[in-house]
């Protein structure tokens, strides 16, 4: 009976991890599903003894919200733009990093710094960089004359080249200007992880493929597209898939740049994301709606990931 004794031991060894998973992952998932399926569920009311009917009302309501559609569009836009841009940039940077020898380690570290820095903190720095007037709270939002003092480095640079300062994120700025800054930020913030993965992949590629290509007189672009990209395709697929998943969960970057309202002061069209929508619902003590939105987000991510996997099965080699 040695086997069953060892099985028992195995369960004991596994139990710390299993208990944590049960309490913090499995139970919340189960609870989310439960709350989403109770019409108009509210935590406080439930604690007060109120009972709720079983049904799909939460889902119907969520989908009917105009805000929800806006959040969905914003989130989709962020994903569709940032993931390809950051993946391609990361690939270029990784290839460049891989082809130089001096200072590679230093550059690697520099490129990796955003990854270990707090998202909100960086967001605030970005907000400062894209600022237009000397005072965030005050200033005339409609006056963008170049005479106004500005400490945002971006506008300083624009002015240096003779351009007019642009109202990126301050009061009265447009949705698309906000969007540009957020995209810029997300791309920059997503780079280090992707570079790390792709550089690791590049360094494990057998150098002889490149020597063989060299002997055959292959041009640089052809080497990149016919050899490097296919050989890196598993890593590229990984980076794209995790990028999409991260993109759908985008929230803190917007908060870091635009503040908790996720909108420029006075803006009619907030840059709210799906996760932002869920937080809003939670803040309104509407757990039923939040759970339903979370499950819809989960469904979308699942769908996109399956689509990604389907595409990569056809395109990823070996």
């Amino acid at each position: 009976m040695v086997e069953s004794k060892q099985q028992w031991k195995a369960w004991v060894y596994l139990s710390p991890a299993l208990i944590l998973l049960l309490v913090f992952t499995v139970w919340p998932i189960f609870n989310t599903v439960r709350m989403s399926l109770l019409n108009g569920y509210r935590g406080l009311a439930a604690a007060g003894g109120q009972t709720f009917e079983f049904g799909f009302q939460n889902f119907v309501k969520v989908v009917q919200y105009r805000q929800f559609k806006d959040c969905l569009v914003t989130t989709l836009l962020l994903c569709v733009i940032t993931v390809p841009v950051s993946s391609f940039l990361a690939l270029l940077i990784a290839v460049c990093l891989n082809s130089i020898k001096p200072l590679r380690r230093l550059l690697q570290t520099i490129f990796f710094l955003p990854y270990v820095t707090n998202t909100i903190a960086i967001g605030m720095v970005f907000a400062a960089m894209f600022n237009i007037v000397g005072n965030i709270a005050g200033g005339d939002p409609n006056s963008t004359a170049s005479s106004i003092a500005t400490f945002g480095i971006v506008n300083n640079v624009i002015q240096l080249f003779g351009g007019k300062p642009i109202n990126w994120i301050n009061a009265g700025s447009t949705y698309w200007h906000n969007m540009f800054v957020v995209i810029f930020y997300i791309v920059w913030n997503a780079l280090p992880f992707k570079i790390l993965i792709l550089l690791g992949g590049l360094q494990s590629v057998n150098k002889q493929y490149y020597e063989a290509a060299k002997v055959d007189g292959t041009s640089r672009t052809r080497v990149f597209f016919r050899i490097t990209v296919p050989l890196l395709s598993p890593m590229i697929a990984y980076v794209v898939i995790t990028g999409f998943i991260g993109g759908f969960k985008e929230y803190s970057s917007v908060v870091g740049i635009l503040g908790e309202d996720m909108a420029a002061t006075g803006s009619e069209t907030p840059l709210n994301t799906m996760v932002g929508f869920i937080y809003d619902a939670l803040e309104n003590n509407n757990q039923g709606r939040a759970s339903a939105a979370a499950l819809i987000l989960f469904g979308i991510i699942l769908l996109v990931t399956l689509l990604n996997l389907y595409v990569s099965k056809k395109k990823v080699h070996y």
Binding site: N206, Q208, Y209, E211, A212, V215, R226, I227, P230, L231, S233, H317, Y318
Partner: peptide, 15 residues
């Protein structure tokens, strides 16, 4: 104009 055959062949695995 040389043809080189590597010790481990270096055939492109994805082609």
């Amino acid at each position: 104009g040389v043809g080189l055959v590597f010790q481990n062949y270096a055939l492109y695995p994805h082609m």
